[in-house]
Design a protein around this nucleic acid. Structure first.
Ligand SMILES: [Zn+2]
Ligand SMILES: [Zn+2]
Ligand SMILES: [Zn+2]
Ligand SMILES: [Zn+2]
Lengths: 167, 167
DNA sequence: TAAGTCAATGTTATATTATAACATTACTAC
DNA sequence: GTAGTAATGTTATAATATAACATTGACTTA
């Protein structure tokens, strides 16, 4: 049986989609990158990543701690922040500055400067890569300033929530 | 005596420039907008804005409070946050999410989604408008998501700090 | 296997950033 | 002058994040 290779869709996270498949695929990538990079996949790291995969909504550090507590993990602030730092450093998680919250990366394993779309209504987030976003800034600017990191977050309303508003 | 009208320069804030003129001009604009919009220019609002004009470096709320204290103003947190909220709401100040800090707006009076360049070495910040930044994102993306607000911050190293590093 | 080492996690305490809720002041309008 | 209102003052606390040190457990190596 051949797997369907769907083209990347900016709106996927906001719309109905096969989220089980979505999680499964992310998790597989996640584990694969740990193997390739010879990182240690501990229960805590796996658990935090799984929490972040739940529904494309970012989680705050203290929300994560609450969920860890329920699952019998230790749950003092450094636990969450350390694991998040690790996952961010290795490109598995991003922080959404607008929300002081964290999301699982959609293109894990590669360090990159992602662009986020944040729906203020359903609170879901989609990460889009440079090609999809079509974001460009002019050459002159680059010569004036050597960019090392970019924070790009668009806040607005998603296709699905627009549709619901119209009804 | 005729005033020189310099064209907007992305790097100005990072380089040597006539900062006295820079402050004077910003302050004049600031006051003018209060008159035009019939806002109340209180000593506190003026003071906070002046603090933010000092040297193109963002200030945290608690730094502002320390400076207010030194000048005999009340200095409990809500004082700073309320004035900052007011100044942000009316487009005189922006918050830099990367730094949890605040800067005076370079194009005050108009609500807009600015782009920031943040030098990690000298810690100065420059705001550039949409025309200067050359930032564009493709139409397809826009139809997928209705953008209402954009957070765009580039972190890197400025022209002046690059120069100093090379020496 | 015993001792050493190191990364990961656990724990306590505290720093930093931000807001809620209510009190007072001072200007305006009637 | 009294009432209404915007601004500021005050107290308390919420929310987010880090510092510093202790313990564990896996792996090394002698
Ligand atoms: Zn999904
Ligand atoms: Zn939505
Ligand atoms: Zn200047
Ligand atoms: Zn610099």
């Amino acid at each position: 049986m051949e797997k369907k290779k769907t083209s990347p869709n900016i709106s996927k996270n906001f719309m109905n989609h096969n989220h089980e498949l979505c999680v499964e695929s992310s998790l597989k990538d996640f584990k694969q990158h740990f193997i390739e990079k010879e990182l240690k996949l501990t229960p805590l790291r796996l658990k935090v990543f799984q929490l972040l995969l739940k529904d494309h909504r970012p989680l705050g550090a203290y929300q994560i701690l609450d969920l860890l507590r329920k699952d019998g993990f230790s749950s003092t602030p450094p636990i969450a922040y350390r694991v998040l730092d690790f996952l961010i450093e290795h490109g598995f998680v991003h922080k959404i500055k607008k929300l002081n919250a964290f999301v699982a990366c959609s293109h894990p394993g590669n360090s990159h400067s992602p662009t986020f779309m944040i729906c203020r209504k359903c609170e879901k987030v989609a990460e889009i890569n440079e090609k999809e976003s079509g974001l460009k800034f002019n050459k002159e600017t680059s010569s004036e300033f050597k960019i090392e990191e970019a924070i790009i977050e668009f806040i607005g309303i998603c296709k699905n929530c627009i549709k619901l508003e119209v009804i």
